[in-house]
């Protein structure tokens, strides 16, 4: 287990993180866009994409919530070694990671304050697949309309109604990611 925990981080941390961030940024700036991310090989059940996102964005300054089956000894050991994020409950986390079923209800996470709407959680949602069909998306970052397979619609609609408060989502599946910021309207 220790050997596994030591492996699977970025081989070239500065460069791999730079590439992964560009993918995450592009996904967040263009909701509905699906991007590949590479470089991370975390222990199952964490996907390589979620591992890369965590390596890129999280560290000792970002309390992390592991939801449901992701809260596993191997995953914790890997995060402790490569990331160092304190593992916390859903109400105080800045990042949460898990399957949709394990992450909901969304009311458990901080959506920021009117003065500081950025002090809200970012949810990394592990999904079985990511495709450009399903929900219709409109809003900043989208020229006309975009399509993305979302685990459901109502929760995201409610999230968008609270704008500028709200949660932001990064979907991960295998080695691919997409994102849905609070500013996106889900039709």
């Amino acid at each position: 287990m220790i050997a596994d925990a030591l492996a699977g981080g970025f081989a070239d941390p500065a460069i791999d993180a730079a590439h992964a961030f560009r993918a995450v940024m592009d996904a967040m700036a263009r909701p509905g866009t699906i991007r590949p991310v590479a470089g991370a090989e975390p222990p199952a059940p964490l996907s390589p994409a979620a591992g890369a996102v965590l390596l890129t964005l999280c560290d000792t300054d970002t309390p992390l919530h592991l939801a449901g089956s992701l809260d596993d000894a191997d995953v914790r050991a890997w995060i402790a070694f490569h990331i160092g994020a304190p593992i916390v409950g859903s109400d105080t986390c800045t990042f949460a990671c898990g399957s949709w079923a394990d992450l909901v209800p969304l009311s458990r996470y901080s959506t920021g304050t009117p003065e500081y709407p950025d002090r809200s959680a970012t949810l990394i949602v592990e999904v079985p697949e990511l495709t450009n069909d399903g929900a219709v998306l409109m809003g900043p970052g989208i020229r006309d309309r975009a399509h993305l397979s979302l685990p459901e619609k109502d929760a995201f609609r409610a999230n968008a109604r609270a704008y500028p408060l709200g949660l932001d989502f990064i979907f991960t599946s295998g080695t691919r990611i997409a994102a849905l910021p609070r500013s996106t309207e889900v039709l």
Binding site: P13, A17, L57, D118, Y163, P181, R182
Partner: peptide, 17 residues
């Protein structure tokens, strides 16, 4: 890298709002 992560998180929130 720690500084970059901090800035990257801020950029993502900026894009979201």
């Amino acid at each position: 890298e720690q500084t970059k992560r901090m800035i990257r998180r801020a950029i993502l929130k900026g894009l979201a709002i």
